[in-house]
Structure formats: C-alpha cells, structure tokens
Design a protein around this nucleic acid. Structure first.
Length: 570
RNA sequence: GGCGCGCUCGUCUAGAGGCCUAGGACACAGCCCUCUCAAGGCUGGUACACGGGUUCGAAUCCCGUGCGCGCUGCCA
C-alpha cells in the first residue's frame, strides 16, 4: 500500500521542483478558468491512471502490494539498497524525509505531477505566491452552531487572518425547503460571539454572491449544462448522475498528506447523484460549484469529508479547474470517544453562551483541539495564535472534548481579564437575575471583589447579590454552623460595639480590629470571621471578609449585625 | 463488508532515529498559604495499542494485527 501513496513514498528530489510545478499549475488553471471556451477532452492535471491506476480487482493486491507495486524511485527500494551500501549523512537524512508521512505531506501537496507537462512559463511563480487566500465556512442551517462547526470556522478564520486572506461565510441550504432564517441566525450569533468575523458572505455581501445556496439555482444550472454538454451527465429514474471517469484520484491534503483513491469500481463507488428528480441539488455538486465560483483557494473542513473528496476532485477535473488545496480537520469527539452530535453536552455553542463562558476562553480552548503552538503555552491571545497558526501544524488524530479543561480555562480568562471587560460580560447575567445594582460605578467595586472566584459568569449574581439587596436570604446550613454555635451571637454584639468606633473604615483596620478582639476574648479570629460573614452576607463562602465589609460600609454592616442577632436570638 | 483516517498519561498535547529512566496542561491525591471558597506554590501517581522488521540505537521509519472513528445516500 505504501508504494501507492505518492505522498509517503515520494523521492526527495521531486520536492525541490514542486513549488514551480504548482505555480505553473495554478497559473494554468487560472487561465483555463478565465477561458469559458476551454473544454478539454481530458484535463491536463488529471492523475495519470496508467501509472497509478490499479486493476479493478486490485483492492486486495493493493494492500499487500508494497513489494511489487511501488514505482522504482520510491523510498522502499531505496532502503533495501541502502542496507548494502555505505551511508552518508546526506543520504540518510534525505531518505528519512522521503519516508516521513507528516512532513512529506506538506511537500507533497504542492506537487501536481501532470502539471509538469503544462506550458506555463516559470515566471508564473510570483503570480502564485501572491495569489490571495480565500477560505470559507459553509454550514448547513441545522438550527444551532455545533462546536465542531465552530472549530472548523475558527481554523478557516485563523488561516485567513494569518495569511491576510478572505474569510467567506456561505450558507449551504441546498434548497428552499432547507432555508430557515432562524437556524441561520443561530449560526451568525455563534460565530459573532466567538469573534469570528467574516469578510464576505451571508449578511455581509461581496462580489461572489448570492451566499445562500438556495438562491444560486441558475448558477448550478449553468454548471450542469457544462457537464451535460460533455456527456458526463445521465438520467437515472428522474435523478441526474455524474458519470465517473473511473480513475484513481489522488487527494492532496495539507493535513493528511497525499492519498490515492481507486474509484474504478462502480460497485463500491457508484456514480454520484447531482440533482434529484424534484430539481433540488445534491451537496457534492453545489459545494464544488460554489467553491469554484467563489474562487476558494483552500477547503478546510471536517475529516468526515475526506472520503468524499475524491468525488469532488472528479468534478473539479470535469469542469477543467484545478482543485483548491484541501485541509481536513480531525473530528471532535465526546469524552467516550463517540462522535459529538447534536444532543451531547456542550455540543452547541449556544450552551457556552448560556452557561456563562467568556467567548475568548472557548475560542482559545477550541484552538487547542487539533492544533498546538508546540511550546507548552496554552493560554495565549488570539493575536498570537493568528501569528503562529499554520495548517501544517494541525494534527491528524481526533480530539475528545474536555469540558473540565474548558471550564478551567474559562476561570483563567475571567481572572486575568480587565475589570471593565468582566463587567461587560457579567451585566447580562446580573440583569437576568433581576439584581438592581444601580450604576455601573456601584457595580464595579463589587465585581472586583468576586472576579477571581468566578468560574462561570452565571455565578456572578450569586456572588454579588448581597451587596445590592439588604434583604438577602440566609443559608440554613451556614446559619447552623456559624451562628448557632455557642456564644456566636454574643460575639457579634461585642464586635458590633467595636466597629461602631472604628476609624478609619478600611479593610486593614477592620482586620486589626478583628484580630485584637479575638486576642482580647482569647479566641481564634475565625470564631469572629465566620459568624460575621454569615451575618452580613447570609452565606459561609464569599470574597475577603474585610474587603467586603469595607465596601458594604459601616452603617449597613452594623444594621446587618443587629438584624441578624434579632432574627436568630429568640 | 469495502475504502479511508487515526492510535503517546483518564483527557488535550510536546515529540521529525540518540537531547526520552518521554516534557507541559486539565483532572485526581497530598502538603503549604489562608477569614471561608477559590486562586497560587510545592510534591506525587498514571502513557508511547500489540507483534514483527530496519538500525549500533525506534515513541519516531517499514510491515502485520487489534481497536476507534469516518465515508460507503436521491443527507450536509
């Protein structure tokens, strides 16, 4: 099998010319694309089947074929030679590179062997180098934004931002039936929440619209006609199918390397349907047409599409267009290893919004699913990630979604973010809880005290409520433990007396007062702290007591001590 | 079933033949700090799926096996 995998067995010598080859290729494709009249009998870059095509019964032969099938120049025969000949450092390193899957992948994708025959001038290179990146996120409006989709969008966005390219949002509602305004809004909301702004596309406009597939019917008709005129379409019980050329198609993938797919057997690879009898379109067809029409340079999508990609490549070839670069992302799995789907916890971006996550934390976490800065950093600003993000550093294995770590990261972000940002994120949750905090000026000091304790923004109202509500509830267990202990209420009385005369009213002097009194009474400071905390906040946990008392102010503190003693004395 | 992809602590990952008695992070456990809860600090346990091969040397390259996932639609 290895021998058939051109990316893995690629001899080192080809990589040195691949850039030029690709450049020529790109230039050629551009010209072909411009020329509507171009109608090749056989596309110039189609993988030459005589070299790599295997007989239809070759499935078995292929997997066991390594000793016989590889071309003479691949690494495997070379290694057998090497064992009987002296090795030089040079041959050693070049050989290992040829055999290294991940690294050879990034070299291999730039090689389109058939392009070597094209007549494009070598000067095409600068043209290719300057070709601006265009990527897209193309979700189907299912009613919500899935974290897997969000991660796909994120990686497209990162690639666009890293390269200075264009990020396009296209809605794949293949037909009117599938078009759902509300479902589409959920996608917009999720993307915007994550800060993934798109430069072009739905709700934004651009030169390649419309950006809803449901509105692109005439374009699909036009492309269908092209294939019909070439005799590549036939009718099957009212549906239209694309007649596969039945060749081996090699997919060049930035992440997965070069993978040959033998499509010669109609039994295992039936001709794909492109349009249903009712006139609606099939995903594979419109997806490719749109990517051509919208001039996408990279298709970055979930790995679940990897096996579909050779079909797509067939379409590109049928249209006489060079395929974009592909990058298939590993899937996101549930903790148990199953594929994350709609109903799973944490599957919807909406759930993170509702549970009080900071978008930058979720986005950072998502970046780490399948990509790594490789230097042990984990929490890093998005600007830095944009700076160092490379498709080739995406790994191939699926990643389990670790809600615990996402949770932890959220806490880290909340602690580290500026108070103003924290307030902006918190206010909706505070409002929702019905807490009337008055002015923002009054709110900020309270938030400052609890900020480092908050793990979810949904916790904020509970942490700060007692600041803004004198009629706070008492937690029964805390009362039992702290206030019903022997002498607790007495101590509150004595302390209240002290605090009446305390000057100045600051956290520092409060702390001194508590400690002095504790010494005087011959008790631990904690025997004062706990009852006071419960008395003034109703709870046994909270921010620093002294700071909390300072913020509350003398009058309210004394009122609360009195109120508490009266309530629980009886 | 066929085809494809993958497999390093429970989880996310670092790892490009010697730097690896495998590093970091989350989670977990213990200790420290401490007015509570957190945060923070320190310490600890836990991993190269298995078997062959290549090599002086393999987590790393090759082959096989196993397991997981994906695709195999007139879903996207």
């Amino acid at each position: 099998m290895s021998g058939a995998r051109t990316g893995r067995g690629r001899p080192p010598c080809t990589s040195s010319t691949s850039t030029d080859t690709k450049a020529s290729c790109r230039a050629t494709a551009e010209r072909l694309f411009m020329s509507a009249a171009y109608c090749p009998g056989r596309t110039p870059w189609a993988t030459k089947t005589s070299a790599t095509k295997l007989s239809s019964k070759s499935t078995a032969a292929r997997s066991k074929a390594s000793p016989t099938s590889p071309p003479p120049s691949t690494a495997r025969p070379a290694s057998s030679t090497a064992s009987s000949s002296p090795r030089t450092p040079a041959s050693s390193s070049s050989m290992s590179r040829a055999a290294r899957p991940r690294k050879s992948a990034s070299n291999a994708i730039t090689a389109f062997p058939r392009c070597a025959n094209s007549t494009a001038p070598n000067s095409a290179r600068p043209f290719f180098m300057s070709s601006p990146v265009r990527v897209r996120f193309a979700p189907s409006p299912t009613g919500f934004l899935h974290v897997g989709g969000a991660r796909t969008a994120l990686f497209n966005w990162l690639h666009a931002r890293h390269t200075g390219g264009t990020f396009v949002l296209r809605i794949e509602d293949t037909d009117r039936e599938r078009h759902n305004e509300e479902a589409v809004r959920a996608i917009y909301q999720g993307l915007r929440w994550l800060g993934l702004d798109w430069d072009e596309g739905a709700e934004k406009g651009g030169d390649y619209g419309p950006y809803y597939q449901s509105e692109r019917g005439p374009i699909y008709e036009r492309y269908l006609k092209i294939l019909q005129d070439k005799g590549m379409i036939y009718e099957d019980s009212g549906a239209l199918r694309f007649r596969s050329p039945r060749e081996t198609v090699t997919v060049h993938d930035e992440v997965c390397g070069s993978i040959p797919f033998d499509l010669s057997n109609p039994g295992t690879h039936p001709d794909m349907t492109v349009r249903r009898p009712d006139g609606s379109w099939i995903f594979h067809f419109v997806n490719v047409v749109d990517d051509i029409e919208m001039k996408m340079t990279h298709v970055i999508r979930g790995e679940d599409h990897l096996s579909n990609t050779p079909k797509h490549v067939e379409l590109y070839q049928a249209f006489g267009v060079e395929p974009p670069k592909f990058a298939h992302l590993p899937l996101i799995l549930n903790p148990d290893g199953s594929k994350m789907s709609k109903r799973d916890t944490g599957a919807s971006v909406q759930s993170y919004i509702e549970q009080g996550y900071a978008p930058e934390a979720v986005r950072n976490y998502l970046c780490l699913l399948g990509w790594s800065p490789k230097d042990n950093r984990e929490i890093l600003p998005i600007e830095e990630i944009i700076n160092i993000f490379e498709l080739k550093n995406i790994n191939r294995r699926s990643a389990g979604f670790d809600l615990d770590k996402c949770f932890w990261m959220n806490g880290q972000y909340l602690i580290q973010m500026p108070l103003e940002r924290f307030a902006d994120l918190s206010v909706p949750f505070i409002d929702q809880a019905g807490i009337n905090f008055g002015t923002r000026e009054a709110l900020l000091p309270a938030l400052a005290l609890v900020k480092e304790k908050v793990k979810h923004l949904t916790d904020v109202p509970g942490w700060i409520e007692f600041f803004f509500n004198d009629d706070y509830a008492y937690d029964e267990a805390s009362v039992e433990k702290a206030l019903r202990a022997d002498g607790a209420l007495e101590r509150l009385h004595v302390l209240g007396d002290r605090l009446t005369r305390l000057e100045p009213w600051t956290a520092e002097s409060l702390e001194s007062a508590f400690k002095d009194l504790a010494t005087t009474l011959g008790i631990k400071t904690a025997a004062l702290v706990h009852p006071v905390r419960v008395a003034t906040t109703g709870r046994s946990v909270g921010p620093s007591l002294y700071h909390l008392l300072e913020l509350l102010g003398r009058d309210r503190v004394l009122q609360r001590l009195t109120r508490t003693r009266e309530k629980f004395t009886a």
